[in-house]
Design a protein around this nucleic acid. Structure first.
Lengths: 344, 344
DNA sequence: TCGGTCTATGTTACCGCTAACGAAGCCTGT
DNA sequence: ACAGGCTTCGTTAGCGGTAACATAGACCGA
C-alpha cells in the first residue's frame, strides 16, 4: 500500500486537491473514484495514484447531496443485548453487502418515544430504506415513515397493520401452537414467565395466543411471573423457584424467551426435578446458546436470520426498481421439542 | 401531535416549503428548527406549526455540508454477537446521549481488511470522532485515522502503540494476574481453551501473559484446545471433554472467555467432577450470564461499561475543546474468584 | 432630537460533489 | 475528404442547508 503522507494536512482534502495533483478536472477524478463513466486506463491510473498518495477520502456528504442518493439503510431495533437481533443483523448485512447498501443501526430500548427520535434522526440523513422491528409505533413515527417516500420494512411480527412492507412471523399463532403442543403432551397445570416490559408487544402477543389456546381447551394459566432487568438466566432461576414454591402442582413452565427458560431448566436440574416427566419446559427463539445446555430446551425458532435476509432483499429490490409495491412476507416458525417436553 | 398530512408529497420537502408556508425566510426557519440565534416567540411558533403540519424533516446532509459539522461518532467493533460489545455500546450511548453526538456502529468480524473498509466508509461521512476496538490495524487504516483530523479512541486494549487516544486494560497483565492467582491456589497442571481466531489479539495477549507467568513459576501449559464458530457454550463443553479425556491429570481449565467457560463448568458439573477441588476453572469478561449458573465461574471483569463511557467522554471533550491532546487511560480489571477456584 | 445599542430578520456566498450536457479528438466507411 | 459515431474529458449549474454579514426597526439615555 502507499506510504502515509509525511505532512499533516490541517485542511481536509477535496476532489480539487486530487485533480490538481493529477492534472485532470475534478469531474474526471470523481468518475475514476466512483468507477462510473468512461475514463481511459492511463488517466484512471494516474488519478488513483494521486488519490492514494494524498490519502484522499471522498466526502459522501457532498456526494449524497449532489446525487440525491444515499447508500444507507436505517435499521431500528429495540435492543442489542439479547441474542435475537444480532442474528437479524447478520441476515441483513449478508444481503446488503452485495448491493452497495450499508446498514446503520439505531437502538430504542423498547421505548416508543425513543423509536420516534431515532427514526427522525435517521430520516434526516435521507436513507434509501428503513427496517424497523415491530408494528407498533407512535402516530408521529408512523406518519414519518408513510411520508418518507422510501421503502419501509417492519420486521419480526405480522400481527397488525403494516405501513409498507413486513417480514415476520405471527407471534399469536406461535403462542397458540406451543400451547397446543403442550396440551397434546398431557400437561395441564401451566405457568408462564416473561418480561415485565409493557412494550414488548411480540412477547405479549405470544402470551395472548397461548392463553387463547388454553381457553379453547377449557384451561387457563395456573400461575405467572414477570421480571425486568438483570441477568435473564438468573431471573429465570428465581422466577422458576418462586412459581414452583407458590404452586407446587405446576407441571409445565412456558417462558417468553430462551434465556430465562435456560435459567429455569438449570434450576430444575439442580433441584433434581424430573424434566420432562414431572415438569415440562419451553422457551422461545431458538438461540444457539441452548445447544450447550445439559438438556435441550423445547423452543420455537423465530426465523431471525431469514427475516433479516428477506427484509434486506425487499429494500434492495425496491431500490433498484422504483415501481415495486409493498408486500407482507409471513414466515413459519418450527417447534423444536428438544428434551424438555414429554413426547406426544 | 399533528395529524398526518393527507396529501402524499412526491417531492421531498425543503426549508423553502416551510418558509413559504410560514411567510418567513429560509434562514429564519433554519434558526427556529436548530434553536439557534434570536427569533421572536411568535415567529418561532408560526414556523413550528408550519413545519409540523407539513411533516418536515430537516436534511442533515445539506446541513452537514454547509456547517462542516456532523454529529456522528463512528464505532468500530469486531462483533455484536458475543456479550462484550453491547455493554461497551451502552456505555458509549449513555455518555453521548447528553452531547448531541450519535454513535454509528460498524462490525468487522475480526477481519482487518473489513475494518479498513468500514473505517473508510465511515470517514467518508466525516464523523466527529471514531472509537475503534483494538490497537491492531492495517497500515492504510492506521494512516487514515492519523490523517483524519478527528479524535480517534482505540478501546479495550492498551498493550501496543496508540494512534491518538486509548481506553482499556492490559490483557497481558490480566493473563499474568490470573495465572498467578491460579498458581497461588495450588493448581499445577493447567490447560487453556480459546478461539482459533488469529485476529483476536486481545485473547492472544491474555494467553501470552498467562504463559509468561507460568514460565516464571517454572511451569508451562499442560494442554490447550482451540475452536471457532458455533455455539460457544457447546464448544466449551466439547473442548473440556476433549481435554479432560486426553489429559486426565489436568487440575485447572483457563478459558479465553466466559461463554466457553460456562460450557466447561456445566460439563464438569454434569460429570460430577469436584469443582474446584479436583479441577478449577476460570474465564474472562465478567458477563452477567454467569450470575445464573449453578456455580459462579471465576472470571475477570473487563471494565466494558467504563471503557465505553471513558471513550465517549474523550470524544465529547475533544469535540468541544479543540486543543485537547490525546491520552491513554488504563483501567484495572478485578479478579472475581467465584466458586470455581480454591480459596487461597 | 439623534447617534448608539439591541433584537429580529433577510441576503449572499459558499460547502464538496455530481447530473447533464457539450466539445474535442479519433476512428470508420465510403 | 468528410459526415457520423464513439470515446474521453471539461463546463456549468445546482443539491439543501448554514456562516457571516447586512439591514431594519425599536428602544434609550443624554
Amino acid at each position: 500500500m502507499t506510504k502515509p503522507t509525511p505532512t499533516e494536512p490541517r485542511r481536509a482534502l477535496t476532489l480539487r486537491d486530487v485533480s490538481e495533483a493529477s492534472g485532470v478536472s475534478e469531474m474526471t477524478v470523481s468518475r475514476v473514484l466512483r468507477n462510473r463513466g468512461d475514463v481511459s486506463a492511463t488517466t484512471r491510473e494516474r488519478v488513483m495514484q494521486a488519490s492514494r498518495a494524498l490519502g484522499y477520502v471522498p466526502n459522501k456528504i457532498a456526494g449524497a447531496l449532489a446525487s440525491q442518493r444515499v447508500n444507507l439503510v436505517g435499521v431500528i431495533i429495540p435492543s442489542m443485548s439479547n441474542m435475537v437481533f444480532p442474528e437479524v443483523m447478520t441476515g441483513i448485512s449478508a444481503v446488503l453487502d452485495s448491493t452497495g447498501l450499508q446498514p446503520v443501526v439505531g437502538v430504542t430500548n423498547y421505548l416508543p418515544d425513543r423509536e420516534e427520535a431515532v427514526l427522525y434522526e435517521m430520516l434526516s440523513w435521507r436513507p434509501s430504506g428503513v427496517i424497523v422491528a415491530g408494528l407498533e409505533h407512535t402516530a408521529a413515527a408512523r406518519a414519518m415513515m408513510a411520508q418518507a417516500g422510501i421503502p419501509i420494512v417492519e420486521i419480526m411480527d405480522i400481527d397488525g397493520q403494516v405501513i409498507d412492507s413486513a417480514v415476520g412471523i405471527s407471534h399469536r399463532r406461535a403462542g397458540r401452537q406451543m400451547a397446543e403442543a403442550i396440551i397434546a403432551s398431557g400437561y395441564r397445570r401451566i405457568a408462564f414467565m416473561g418480561t415485565q416490559m409493557p412494550n414488548d408487544f411480540r412477547a405479549k402477543k405470544r402470551l395472548e395466543g397461548f392463553e387463547e389456546a388454553l381457553r379453547r381447551n377449557g384451561m387457563a394459566l395456573a400461575d405467572h411471573e414477570f421480571y425486568d432487568g438483570g441477568s435473564a438466566l438468573l431471573k429465570g432461576r428465581e422466577m422458576t423457584a418462586a412459581v414452583l414454591r407458590r404452586s407446587p402442582d405446576i407441571d409445565f413452565l412456558y417462558y417468553s424467551n430462551d434465556m430465562i427458560g435456560a435459567g429455569g431448566l438449570l434450576y430444575c436440574l439442580d433441584q433434581g426435578i424430573d424434566v420432562p416427566g414431572k415438569v415440562g419446559l419451553a422457551g422461545f427463539n431458538g438461540v444457539e446458546l441452548l445447544d450447550g445446555l445439559p438438556r435441550r430446551l423445547a423452543t420455537m425458532d423465530a426465523c431471525r436470520l431469514e427475516i433479516g435476509q428477506r427484509a434486506a432483499q425487499i429494500i434492495a429490490a425496491r431500490n433498484q426498481t422504483a415501481d415495486l409495491i409493498g408486500q407482507v412476507v409471513e414466515l413459519f416458525p418450527t417447534l423444536q421439542p428438544g428434551d424438555t417436553i414429554r413426547p406426544f
